[in-house]
Design a protein around this nucleic acid. Structure first.
Lengths: 215, 215
DNA sequence: TAGATTGTTAATCGATTAACAATC
DNA sequence: TAGATTGTTAATCGATTAACAATC
C-alpha cells in the first residue's frame, strides 16, 4: 500500500482533534462542521479540512462530519484500534507514576513489565505488575510480546539501554531521559523532555514580563 | 526595550542547543563552529546561525563560538539566570514524581509547595516539602512568592483550578492535565500532554510497519 | 596575510490560509 | 431545490536552506 508521508506538523495535531472529538462524543454531539470545530479549537477550518484530507474524505458536503465516525477514524489513523504491550525501564518516581497512570489502558497501552537496576525495588508491585531486575529483561523479551518501551532512567544510561532494547527487538521507545537517542531509522523514538518544556515556560514568562514592561 | 517576537519554532530548539552546549562544556570543549555543532545535532549550520542571530551575534568570524559564553547566553535567554518558585497542584503519582525530581533545582526551579484535595496526603513530606490541603493555597500565595504552578490534577478540575491560580496572581502554568486551558493572554501555559505523545508514538510505529511491509 | 567562519541577504521549500467548484 | 459545507486548488505566508560578503 502506498502512503505518502504525512508531515509531522499534521501528526502533532491529530491527537488534539481526537481529544476534542472524544469530548463532543461524550456530550452526545452527533455532527460538527469544520467551522464549528475550528472555533472550539482555535485553529482555522481550512487547516482542519486539509489535515483530515491527508487521510481521506471523512465528511459530507452540506453536513459536516459525523463525530463518532470521525473519532473512530482518527483513532485508527493513530493506531488506537490495536493493543500495545508496554514495558517501563526505570522504576523511579517517574516510572512508577507512568505505571500507575490507568488512563493509558483506555487507549490500548498495557503496562506488562517494569524493570530497574536497583535490587531494593525488586518485588514491589504496581497495579499487580512486579518490578523486575533489569537482568531479566532479555529473558522477558523472549517470552513476551513487547511493542513499546518507556525509558525513565538517567541520561547517562539511556543510550546503552536503548541500544540493548533495539537489539532485543523493540521498535518504539518513549524516551523520558534528557538525551537524544541515535538509533536505526526503523526504531521510532518519541521524546518527552520535561526540563526543556520547563525552560520554554521560563522563556515565555520572561519574554511576557519584558514586553509588558515596555508598553 | 523593543523585542521582535521570536517564532516558537526557534524557542523550541533553544533548550536543545543549551543541552548540547552543556555537554560540550562538561567535556572541556572551548570553541565550536556552527558546522561542527550542526553535525552533532543533525540540523543545518545555517539554522543554528539563524536561530542564534535572533538574539545577537555570539560568535566570531573565523573562530566560531566560545562554548562557555554561548551556553551562558542561551541560559540567560531562557531565563535560567533567575530563580523560580514552583508549586505543584496535585500530589498524585506524577505530582510527587515532579517534586522528587532534583534536577529542576539545578536550573533554578525550586519546588516550594505541594497541594492536594485529598486530606489523607496532608502532612506527607517530599524532600522536606509538606503536602498541604488545597484550601490553604490562597493564604500560601499571599505569604509566598510563587512564579510557576505545575498542574498535575485530573482534567475535569484543571480549568477551574487554573482560573483560581490566575486570580491569585500566577502567570505561568505547567499543565499536565489533558485539556487546553483558556486563560488571559498574559498567562503563559506550557502543556505536557503525555497521552498525546504516546499516540504520536503509536502512529509512527504503525506507519513504519506499514511502509516496511510495502517495500 | 590567508583561511575559516560568522552574520545576513536571497532563494527555496513547505505549511497555512483563502477561495471556490463540487455536491450532499 | 436552495443552502450549507466539504474537498481541493491556488495564493500567501513563514521557516529553512543556500550563498556570500564581511571580518576575525
Amino acid at each position: 500500500m502506498y502512503d505518502k508521508t504525512i508531515s509531522s506538523a499534521v501528526i502533532k495535531r491529530l491527537p488534539r482533534y481526537y481529544r476534542y472529538l472524544g469530548e463532543l462524543l461524550e456530550n452526545d454531539v452527533v455532527r460538527i462542521s469544520s467551522k464549528e470545530l475550528s472555533e472550539k479549537m482555535n485553529v482555522t477550518a481550512s487547516q482542519i479540512r486539509q489535515d483530515l484530507n491527508n487521510f481521506g474524505g471523512f465528511g459530507q458536503q452540506g453536513y459536516g462530519y459525523n463525530v463518532e465516525y470521525l473519532y473512530t477514524e482518527i483513532g485508527k489513523i493513530l493506531g488506537l484500534d490495536k493493543k500495545y504491550n508496554v514495558i517501563i525501564i526505570g522504576a523511579g518516581n517517574l516510572g512508577q507514576a507512568l505505571a500507575n497512570y490507568t488512563d493509558f489502558e483506555r487507549r490500548g497501552f498495557y503496562i506488562c513489565g517494569i524493570f530497574d537496576v536497583n535490587p531494593r525495588l525488586i518485588g514491589i508491585s504496581i497495579r499487580g505488575i512486579e518490578i523486575r531486575l533489569i537482568d531479566e529483561l532479555e529473558e522477558f523479551m523472549k517470552t513476551n510480546t513487547v511493542n513499546i518501551a518507556a525509558l525513565t532512567i538517567p541520561k547517562a544510561k539511556a543510550p546503552q539501554v536503548a541500544a540493548d532494547l533495539v537489539s532485543l527487538g523493540i521498535h518504539a521507545i518513549w524516551n523520558f531521559a534528557p538525551t537524544d537517542l541515535n538509533l536505526p531509522k526503523d526504531v521510532m523514538v518519541e521524546n518527552v523532555h520535561l526540563a526543556e518544556s520547563l525552560m520554554r515556560l521560563s522563556y515565555n514568562l520572561k519574554a511576557a514580563e519584558e514586553s509588558g514592561e515596555s508598553i
